[in-house]
């Protein structure tokens, strides 16, 4: 299991479009991808689950990757967060 902590800097938070684009990147990995906010977990491969977390600017989230290719997944997806959020 790999984890990456990130504080969202985008003023608008993780709204529909960034959530959708994140999921597109996440689904290519075979393992489990999770986003955690305040202890609430969301399946990082499900756009509505990610949207439901209601991640806003200033929120600290944890990106978690597990299983096959967890190393590659954490690298690609943490970069996505840094570049887009």
């Amino acid at each position: 299991m790999r984890e990456f902590k990130y504080t969202v800097k985008d003023e608008l938070g993780m709204h529909a479009r960034p959530a959708g684009l994140f999921v597109k990147e996440a689904v290519v990995f075979p393992g489990r991808i999770t986003i955690v906010k305040n202890g609430k977990e969301a399946d990082g491969k499900k756009i509505f689950a990610v949207m439901e977390l209601d991640v806003e600017c200033g929120d600290e989230i944890i990106l978690r990757t597990e299983g096959e290719q967890e190393e590659e997944a954490i690298s690609v997806l943490s970069r996505f967060l840094e570049e887009n959020l």
């Binding site: 709204h15 529909a16 479009r17 959708g20 756009i47 509505f48 949207m51 439901e52 209601d54």
Partner: peptide
């Protein structure tokens, strides 16, 4: 309605057949 974004601009709908739609 699986997801209603608080700003009111996006809606996630799950159909009975499992298809998911986003209205943006």
């Amino acid at each position: 309605l699986s997801a209603v974004f608080p700003t009111g601009h996006a809606y996630g709908l799950t159909m009975k057949n499992g298809v998911e739609l986003l209205v943006h």
